[in-house]
Design a protein around this nucleic acid. Structure first.
Length: 438
DNA sequence: TATACCGAGGGGATCTCAAA
DNA sequence: TTTGAGATCCCCTCGGTATA
C-alpha cells in the first residue's frame, strides 16, 4: 500500500469525449512513481474507478471546474485569472456555467464528485497544502500550472487542435525534466518520450499526468510554490506559480482571495424537467417525461413524436430530442404518416451510443428495407420528418448474452410487454417467432 | 467606439479507413 | 457492403486586449 497517491483526471468535460486518468504514488524516498500507465477513460470508467479506489491517503486533481453556480458567463476566478495572465502570458480560462451541458444536471462531473463525496473525500484545497490526514480532491487548470511549474514566457499551444508540433515536443521535453525536479517524477520518460505522437489520446494522458503532478506539487511545497485562487463558494483554481505569474496574480487577486481555508461545496444544478438530482441521476434518466409509463414487462412506451430522419443507417438523438436512451434497450418506431404505418426497430451501437446519442437500424432485412425506403435521399442538410410513436424495449436476452447489441429476432417480449399498437402492420405469425426476422 | 483576435473548451458534419 | 472509430474542419460561448 502506498502512503500517498496523487491522481490526475483530465475529464475532457463533456459526455462525448474521453479523458484520461493518471496515478502517481509517493515513495518513502520522496520520489513519485507511476502506479500504472496513464489510461484513457470516459465518465463511466472514471466514476467506476472512484467507487473502488482504495488508497490510504489520496489526492485527486481534476482538470475541470467543480464549483459552478451561475447560469451564464465566467466564474469570478476565471475572469480574474484571464485578466492576470492573458496580457503577458496569453493564458485565459474557459467560461464555466450551468448553461453548458458539461455542468448541466446530467453532467458526468457531478456523478464523479458525488461518488468521491460519498466515500469521504473532501473538497478542501488548503487541507492538501497542510498535508492533513484524509483524502481530498480539487480543481486545477493545466495551462496556468505549466506557466508556474516551468516559468514559461507564455502558454504552450500543445493541444492537438493547434497542430503545433514544436510546442508539443517542448511540452514533452519539459515533462521529462520532472524526473530531476522536486518532487522527482520517476519514469516520466516512458510516457513523455521524444517522438510521442501528437494525438488527442496522448494529449489527454499528458493532461492527466500534469494534473496528478500539480496535486503532488501542492502537497509537497504547499503555499510556497502554489496557490489556491478564488472563492470556495463561487469557484477556485489551484495552480503552481513562478515569480512572474505570482506577481501577475497578486495584481488582480486580493489577499482574501488566495489560499482560503475550508471546504468547497460542489452542487449539481437543479433540472427544470422535474428529474431528481443526486448520485443516481444518469444521462438516461434525465429528461424522461414525467408521464412516460414503464410497463410491467420492462417496455416503456412514448407518445407521438416528430421523427427527424437524417441518415439511412442510424437514428440520431441530436435531431430527435425525445430519444433519451441509447444503451441496453431497443427502440421501436411506428411511422404514422408513411404508407402502411411501418414499424421499425433500432438497436444500440456496440460502443459510444450514449456519447453519440444515436442508435442503428437493426439487422432485420424487413426493418432495413423499410428504413431505406423512408430515408431515401435524406442527409443532415436535407432531413425528412414523419409523425411516429415510439417504445423502448429490453434487448433480446440472446443478444445480451453475447455481449453485443446485435438484434437477432422478435423474441416474444414484444407481445408480452403490451406494445400492441403496431401489431396490425406486422405479421402476427412472425411477431413471436425467433428466426423469421433474423 | 467598433472590430478583430486571443485564450479556454465544446459540438456537429464530413471524410477516411480498418474490421466485420 | 456496412459499421463505427478516429481525424479534421468549422463554428459556437465568453471575456480581455490591441488596433483602427
Amino acid at each position: 500500500m502506498h502512503k500517498v497517491v496523487f491522481t490526475g483526471f483530465d475529464s475532457a468535460w463533456g459526455r462525448r469525449n474521453k479523458g484520461a486518468l493518471c496515478h502517481l504514488a509517493l515513495r518513502r524516498d520522496g520520489a513519485l512513481e507511476f502506479v500504472a500507465p496513464p489510461d484513457t477513460c470516459g465518465w463511466s470508467d472514471a466514476t467506476a474507478w472512484a467507487r473502488t479506489a482504495t488508497y490510504e491517503r489520496h489526492i485527486v486533481a481534476i482538470d475541470q471546474g467543480l464549483v459552478v453556480r451561475d447560469a451564464t458567463g465566467m466564474r469570478p476566478v476565471e475572469r480574474k485569472l484571464a485578466k492576470a495572465l492573458m496580457k503577458d502570458f496569453k493564458c485565459g480560462a474557459h467560461a464555466s456555467n450551468t448553461s453548458n451541458p458539461c455542468y448541466g444536471p446530467a453532467a458526468g462531473i457531478w456523478d464523479f464528485v458525488e461518488v468521491l463525496e460519498g466515500r469521504g473525500y473532501q473538497q478542501n484545497p488548503m487541507a492538501i497544502a497542510e498535508r492533513a490526514a484524509g483524502s481530498f480532491y480539487f480543481e486545477c487548470f493545466p495551462h496556468p500550472a505549466l506557466l508556474g511549474l516551468f516559468d514559461l514566457d507564455g502558454i504552450l499551444k500543445y493541444k492537438v487542435r493547434h497542430r503545433d508540433p514544436f510546442s508539443w515536443q517542448q511540452l514533452l521535453e519539459l515533462l521529462r525534466s520532472l524526473e530531476v525536479r522536486e518532487p522527482p517524477l520517476l519514469g516520466i520518460g516512458c510516457y513523455a518520450a521524444a517522438g510521442l505522437p501528437q494525438t488527442l489520446d496522448n494529449e489527454n494522458k499528458l493532461d492527466a499526468i500534469i494534473a496528478a503532478y500539480v496535486g503532488a506539487f501542492w502537497w509537497h511545497h504547499g503555499t510556497d510554490r502554489s496557490v489556491s485562487l478564488g472563492s470556495l463558494s463561487t469557484g477556485y483554481v489551484v495552480t503552481p506559480f513562478s515569480e512572474r505569474t505570482k506577481a501577475a496574480l497578486d495584481s488582480v487577486f486580493a489577499p482574501a482571495e488566495m489560499n482560503v481555508a475550508g471546504r468547497a461545496a460542489s452542487a449539481r444544478p437543479a433540472t427544470t424537467s422535474g428529474a431528481v438530482a443526486g448520485p443516481s441521476t444518469t444521462s438516461a434518466s434525465i429528461g424522461r417525461a414525467p408521464t412516460d409509463p414503464v410497463g410491467a414487462a420492462g417496455c416503456r412506451q412514448g407518445g407521438e413524436v416528430e421523427l427527424v430522419c437524417t441518415d439511412p443507417g442510424n437514428l440520431q438523438g441530436n435531431v430527435n430530442p425525445w430519444m433519451t436512451e441509447f444503451e441496453g434497450v431497443s427502440l421501436v418506431l411506428a411511422v404514422l404518416d408513411a404508407e402502411g404505418e411501418p414499424t421499425i426497430r433500432f438497436v444500440p451501437y456496440r460502443r459510444f451510443g450514449a456519447e453519440q446519442k444515436g442508435m442503428r437500424i437493426c439487422e432485420s432485412l424487413e426493418d432495413r428495407a423499410e428504413w431505406t425506403l423512408l430515408t431515401a435521399g435524406v442527409s443532415n442538410k436535407a432531413p425528412r420528418i414523419y409523425r411516429a410513436r415510439f417504445a423502448y424495449e429490453p434487448l433480446c436476452p440472446a443478444a445480451s448474452v453475447r455481449g453485443t447489441s446485435r438484434w437477432c429476432c422478435w423474441c416474444g417480449r414484444s407481445a408480452a410487454s403490451g406494445v400492441r399498437w403496431w401489431a396490425t402492420s406486422k405479421p402476427s405469425s412472425n411477431s413471436t417467432g425467433s428466426a423469421s426476422r433474423s
